[in-house]
Amino acid sequence: MAWFKKHRMPIPETPKRPKVVEGLWLKCNHCREIVYRKEVERNNKVCPKCEYHFPISVAERITMLVDLGTFKEWDAGIEPKDPLVFTDTSSYRDRLKAQQEKTGRKDAIVIGEGAVNGRRIALGVLDFSFMGGSMGSVVGEKICLAVDRALVSRNPLVLVTASGGARMQEGILSLMQMAKTSAAVARLGEAGVPFVSILGDPTFGGVTASVAMLADVIIAEPKALIGFAGPRVIEQTIKQQLPDEFQRAEFLLEHGIVDLIVERKHLKETLTTVLSHFQ
């Protein structure tokens, strides 16, 4: 054994230019104010100026909703295929590979079981960072698998969404996931198993027009953009500027489309109360 040990010290790369404060500050997606990142993070990723709820990662979402140490993931290994051999400016296969490397996930959803203040639930969380949380065959299949398990255990199903809609690269098969997941939710309803959806920013297209809108109780996060058609498509179609708060959660609440808007810091507590009424 040596008396002295030489620690290898890697030479730190000298930054060419003093780093811009990027990362320290954030621009709010809603009020456009510049806010201190740390403050946002301390505040459940909520804008301190306007209460806009920033998108959060799947892991953060699970930590926020589920009792510590109770979450068990299901079917993490199910992978997407490329049924259309789809290529636009790059191939679907390459896009998938890049997204899988970026997120460490096979596709845009995590399903599993956990407890919310002791109440067992089946949980699905869409991952917006994986191809915009788009619903292709894997997302559809895993929602159905979560429903299947909820049918057996009779535990409530909770689905947290953040999605641009159907996944174009799987063409008509993506569209069919809307029918497939809606059929599964129909069976859940017939069996009397409760289903709560929590709509995050943004939730659009094929996800809104299927499972998300079919829950027994629909909760939206403050200021979340939720709708069928995206605002740009609507603007181009009607050739008018859209009203300011169009398609925000508050707009949906006013028009009777969602049941309630719940701030992130009260989400777990509210979910617990809602589920307690279905016991």
Partner: peptide, 15 residues
């Protein structure tokens, strides 16, 4: 894709 359609719940109607 219109304002009225969204106000009256286009997504819910389809779902």
């Amino acid at each position: 894709p219109g304002i009225g359609a969204e106000e009256r719940g286009q997504a819910e109607a389809i779902a």
